[in-house]
Design a binder for these strands. Sequence first.
DNA 1: ATTTACTTTCTGAAATTATTGAAAGTTAAT
DNA 2: ATTAACTTTCAATAATTTCAGAAAGTAAAT
Lengths: 181, 181
Amino acid sequence: MSLSEKNFAFVMHCGEMGSRWGFNRTIGQMCGLLIITKNPMTANEIADALSISRGNVSMGIKELQSWQLIKVQHIPGDRKEYYAPAGEIWDMANRVFEERKKREIEPTLTLLRDNLLDEASNDDELYAQKQMGEIHNLLETVTKWSSELQRLTPEQLNKLMKLGSGIGKVIDLKDKIFKKE
Amino acid sequence: MSLSEKNFAFVMHCGEMGSRWGFNRTIGQMCGLLIITKNPMTANEIADALSISRGNVSMGIKELQSWQLIKVQHIPGDRKEYYAPAGEIWDMANRVFEERKKREIEPTLTLLRDNLLDEASNDDELYAQKQMGEIHNLLETVTKWSSELQRLTPEQLNKLMKLGSGIGKVIDLKDKIFKKE
DNA sequence: ATTTACTTTCTGAAATTATTGAAAGTTAAT
DNA sequence: ATTAACTTTCAATAATTTCAGAAAGTAAAT
């Protein structure tokens, strides 16, 4: 079974974008392919569909598993491994987001915290520390905020999203009601 | 004037991270360097501080300008160009975010919209379209939501951030008050 | 118009990253 | 124990990206 033109275009597009999301072209293609394919696929089917080597598929699978984006399935009486997306689109996006946070924000936070422990010994250092402090705060806010969002129930989240620009009003509303502090 | 050990470590770290944010190592380093350096720097100073070629700096400047992350300044009676960050940390993060959205979300949205116009002609295509539809919705939500956030005043934004997990309660509260619909 | 002080562009070399395909590994069936 | 049907690993190669340094460009000062 081969891909329709449109579906193929989508898979290739995932390849181009893939590199921006932290994996390489092939892995992006694999991910896109598995997402739009109804039935789980074998490694060989993937290799054929994308015209890449079997070995390359094996690497890609390992990588996609490390991102927890795909899962393995077995069909009784069949020794092959079948691969499928590990969850709904929303879950997958969340995983990518989480993984990226871990890879790019956390190391920076660690380094910044370490740097900020030192006393600045002159004006230049003081300025550098001020700037690093700002980055640190920004990253902490982003981290905290994103984990808060993930704590919401899907229902709350949905409401929040629908709220859209109304969010501003709700904040003001909350202020009026609890204006004591 | 050369960098302290800690500051140098920060700049190098920006190099490593840089590639994840869409530019390359050198450009990440340049960006970090300009952020923690109090005074605007000339291209030659940058080249010296990072031990890279003058030509490479020139490329990097062009790229950073295309991201609107740095600005050029002139000192009267001096022909050199001096480079400095284009704004506060928060602004720069916003620019990077915006630019990434433009580069990776918008093209995908375009492709998906195009693909979703077609009628599915069989079961496989129908499934593929369903999945693409989900991705499309997710990306639209993210896009919409992020531009809502940018529309908030810094003050509102600050309150929202401080709210943290309390956001859930506020949503529920709002629901109770306007429970008519 | 020339020189001088700069910036930009471009080419090929170097470094990095991705990919193949063959060999090795694994495991179920016989 | 051997074979058959798979998967994984890895060394060699291919493709891509980054970079230095030279050459070309620009424009202020003389």
